[in-house]
């Protein structure tokens, strides 16, 4: 079974408004790293929000077509339920951390699952080790740098142990050391069979992707092997994706 199935997905905020997503169809299998590439405003963040059910449950709008994660129809389940399948790390690091310490932040999700304290403690310990956060375990997330905040947010989401992970421009605000670190972590997660969607507009961040989807103005214009698309400089230049 494919982890993510998107079939003929169309979306607009208002019935009379601009189409933000146009007839998008793709599948992502287990253990695959798929990058979604495109200029800002092309609808790639919106696609991520659809996978987590934020659209249509929070932001409303008109959604047609099918979005399934692990065989579950996104439209029919609330965001909290979908969170067990899809982990979302958002673009803005400021508003996704809200607890007084890094440790509390990572413990928040497993606490919602009503796990026994020992199991919560174990998950927090694992996350902190995996992401190398032991130095800032008791730090106030407010005082961390943008890159560190994204690492903590990633840990907080991974503590739910979702099978699918969606990262929305998480590497944009990181310096090169942090970027490398997060790439290593993602490659490692793929080995555990996680399906990972990276939403980015910088080619540099996509070196770990197996497949790339290119969006332009709401439409999926290319879906192919990462190596093949990265090598096609003429195409990328035409899409204004080269700096």
């Amino acid at each position: 079974m494919d982890a993510v199935v998107v079939d003929n997905l169309c979306y607009k905020y208002q019935p009379s408004g601009r189409q933000i997503l146009k007839n998008i169809s793709f599948k992502a299998g287990q253990g695959e790293i798929v990058a979604v590439l495109g200029l800002s405003g092309c609808g790639k963040s919106t696609l991520g929000l659809c996978l987590g059910g934020i659209i249509p449950h929070y932001l409303g709008g008109e959604l047609t077509g099918r979005v399934q994660v692990h065989g579950i129809e996104v439209k029919d389940h609330n965001v909290a339920r979908l969170a067990l399948e899809v982990g979302l790390v958002f673009q803005d690091p400021e508003t996704q951390l809200f607890l007084p310490t890094v440790e509390d932040e990572i413990a928040f999700a497993p606490e919602n699952l009503c796990l026994p304290p020992e199991e919560i403690g174990k998950r927090v310990y694992d996350m902190i080790n995996m992401l190398g956060l032991s130095d800032i375990r008791q730090a106030n997330p407010n005082q961390l740098s943008g890159g560190q905040k994204h690492l903590v947010a990633l840990g907080a989401v991974l503590a739910l142990e979702p099978g699918i992970l969606v990262l929305d421009e998480v590497m944009a605000q990181m310096d090169s050391t942090s970027k490398k670190k997060i790439k290593d972590i993602l490659v490692n997660l793929r080995l555990y069979g996680k399906t990972i969607l990276i939403i980015e507009h910088e080619l540099e961040s996509l070196s770990i992707a197996d497949r790339i989807l290119v969006l332009e103005d709401g439409a999926l214009i290319r879906d192919g092997q990462a190596s093949e698309i990265v090598a096609d400089e003429e195409f990328l230049a035409r899409q204004k994706l080269m700096f």
């Binding site: 929070y58 996704q96 413990a107 928040f108 999700a109 606490e111 919602n112 009503c114």
Partner: peptide, 23 residues
């Protein structure tokens, strides 16, 4: 709103009860 989304995207209120790391 963003905060509400973040919390629910981490399964807040998925059950009526929740447990805690510390007691």
């Amino acid at each position: 709103r963003q905060l509400a989304i973040t919390m629910e995207a981490r399964a807040f209120r998925v059950y009526r009860r929740r447990t805690y790391l510390r007691v």
